[in-house]
Nucleic acid binder design. Structure first.
Lengths: 334, 334
DNA sequence: TATAGATATGAAATCGATGACGGAAACGAT
DNA sequence: ATCGTTTCCGTCATCGATTTCATATCTATA
């Protein structure tokens, strides 16, 4: 099976390569008969243009990369997949890059900028920090999916998130309203400006409103995996058995924690109430059904693509889009 | 921030572009001093070659595409991610393509063959059928990860799987050994040659060995999602409450089913035993812990990459690699 | 000393497309 | 009849790399 080039098509249709190129790019200045003849030949040969050649010449064409950090996080993975899905209608070619925990996503982005002439990025699961200054200096549009940009005004960087702080506040408020006071919070490191730190702030807000203070010694730092959470939770609940509720910053953590409690002979929600975060499909079917903050994956994905396209198609200003999340009150809290 | 080309590097290093190209490609015929000078300049400029230009000229260079069908299946998703991970050491550029349920993966592959000069494919979650004949005719190496090639000799197509039939047989044998006889089987459509049909055959084998016959009316066709399984299981167990065990062809199905049973007021494993398939992380932490056939994701991924590279680097014959799976006997079966 | 061979480098063609520019033909207005 | 416009299409340079071929220098051997 021969791979045809536009030269072949031009020869077969009896026109110049330029004309074929014009037909390919749907330019108006081609006679209808000529266009139809060329199209017929292209169809017969199953002609598909060479993306390398096009990309080489058209330095102004758009390529977007989605960079996913954390392939073991089901929420982030499904978000990245949803972004790829919604990118299909955009008329721009999106490519996905997986990076490992220890890799620097901005280094990778910089490389792609040169290597594949990528013109814009969507980061999934990355926190925003100084490392991205080089990219920002190049005036490259970037969207952070589920990471808050925060106060620091970063040119050309947009963010699509839920209102992390408000939702965390509502979640913890719910726990407090249910009568819990000895509440543990399971998160990761509390880096400033991070979206997880916002969830932490939200939790503190809820306490404050009730005239209470969060007992810092009930903050647990854990990896965001079921296994990591299992270990941490086991250790914690052995040490602090009086804790009656836990607010977890991800569903995976919540489920690992529930499993740990079960193994300690304690039941959820009768002995301990557990609140999750993310709203993964798994949580709905878990036993007990997970009470959680549902992040609208499709909305975040769609908005991320929209905001990005808007930034470099219409040169729109970077924005911070907040999509609506929902509290899913389910069995794991009582 | 300027994007340097090899022309720039050549000028700055005071050599020709040919020499820079030679340094880039680690060719031996460059004087050490020259090489070091060029390398120094490249490092200073943070030079990264343009993949489009290289791909355009080097028609013999290798590009591999991983085509993932079914972005809602956690097992397949993590397998695809693992393949991308293991591809990193191969020295070949791998790209990942997501396709939707209704799309034809072989059409997509054919397009990539032209558009990006992809030379080989790894299909994740695709079944092998006649549609791939065009690709096979082009002598393009392909690997099917977790799909059995079966008897039909397909040139240039390899497969990496576990021994589906044997493992399914062991799983169902375990259920029978536990004293269950009224066993339901939850799978998808029983297409011939499909890996799921092998699991079905394995289940039948187990019955046959015990001198029993599987009651066909206990075969349930379901979508491979928790939600789909939930609906099917609910309907089935209302209709056939005497069923004491279920063999599910995926962990997602098993978990959806367990949730459905719970909602019907029946407990697992006391009232009904449930066997899963895949060995997802989730299953280990589910309540009850899921008894399942664990597919070694990393092994399958590594072997898929290895077999593929072997096929077009060393022109190795296509093979069918069977990796070792393991029965994980856990709480959900009694 | 002459010659072959090895080593190191550059000039120029090339990959498959795009795009600036220009020319030919057809048409309309004066 | 002349000139300006519009429409349609081709020539040629170009994108950034690789690769072939030629050339220059050095070394080893007859």
């Amino acid at each position: 099976m021969k791979i045809y080039t536009i030269k072949d098509i031009a020869r077969l249709a009896g026109v110049s390569v330029t004309t074929v190129s014009r037909v390919l790019n749907r330019r108006p200045d081609v006679n209808r008969e000529t266009r139809e003849k060329v199209e017929r030949v292209m169809a017969e040969c199953h002609f598909v243009g060479n993306a390398n050649a096009r990309g080489l010449k058209q330095t102004d064409s758009d390529v977007v990369a989605v960079i996913l950090r954390g392939r073991h996080n089901p929420f982030l993975t499904s978000l990245a997949e949803a972004i790829m899905h919604y990118s299909q209608g955009s008329g721009t070619s999106f490519l996905m890059e997986f990076i490992d925990e220890q890799d620097d996503e901005f280094q990778t982005a910089l490389r792609l900028t040169h290597e594949k002439r990528v013109k814009a990025f969507i980061f999934v699961g990355s926190r925003i920090d100084d490392r991205c200054k080089v990219l920002l200096g190049m005036d490259i549009p970037m969207v952070f999916a589920t990471a808050a940009v925060g106060h620091e005004q970063l040119a050309r960087a947009s963010a699509v998130t839920i209102d992390e702080r408000a939702m965390a506040r509502l979640a913890v408020k719910h726990l407090l309203d249910c009568g819990h006071e000895r509440i543990a919070v399971f998160g990761a490191s509390r880096t400033e400006g991070d979206n997880l730190s916002l969830r932490y702030q939200g939790a503190l807000d809820a306490f404050r409103e009730k005239g209470l203070v969060f007992d810092e010694s009930r903050y647990v730092e854990t990896r965001f995996s079921m296994e990591g959470a299992y270990e941490c939770a086991r250790e914690f609940f052995l040490r602090r058995p009086d804790t009656t509720a836990a607010f977890c910053m991800s569903d995976s953590v919540a489920m690992g924690l529930i499993r740990a409690l079960k193994d300690l002979g304690r039941t959820v929600p009768d002995d301990v109430s557990v609140f999750g975060f993310d709203g993964t499909e798994m949580g709905q079917f878990f036993i007990p059904r997970l009470c959680t903050v549902e992040q609208p994956v499709d909305d975040i994905a769609r908005e991320s693509v929209r905001v990005l396209m808007d930034m470099f198609r219409n040169n729109a200003e970077p924005t911070e889009v907040v999509v609506k999340a929902e509290l899913k009150l389910r069995e794991s809290v009582k």
